[in-house]
C-alpha cells in the first residue's frame, strides 16, 4: 500500500494506521495533520486507518510574519 507523506512515497506491506505511518515518517511533535487536503483533528489520529494512495500532510511550526 502506498501512502504519500509530505509528498514522499512510503510503501507498506499491509493496511496501516495513521499513527504507524507517522512513526515511519518520524514526525516530530507538535504537528497537525491534513488527510487528503482535509484537516484531521488530533482526536481522530489514533482511530484513522489509511487507504492506498492516501495523501498525508504533516505540518509544524516555522517562522512567520
Amino acid at each position: 500500500m502506498d501512502i504519500y507523506i509530505n509528498q514522499q512515497l512510503f510503501s507498506f506491506d499491509s493496511e496501516v494506521c495513521l499513527v504507524e505511518a507517522l512513526e515511519k515518517f518520524k514526525a516530530i511533535p507538535p504537528f497537525a495533520i491534513l488527510l487528503n487536503d482535509e484537516f484531521l483533528p488530533q482526536s481522530e489520529h489514533k482511530s484513522t486507518l489509511l487507504k492506498d494512495n492516501d495523501k498525508v500532510d504533516v505540518v509544524g511550526a516555522i517562522q512567520g510574519g
Binding site: F25, I28, P30, F31, V59, G60, I62, Q63, G64
Partner: peptide, 18 residues
Amino acid sequence: TLSISRQNPLQNGGQNFW
C-alpha cells in the same frame, strides 16, 4: 507571529525555531 508548513524530520522538523 509565526506560521506552519510541511515538516521535514531530516531537518529536525523546525525544532530549533520552536
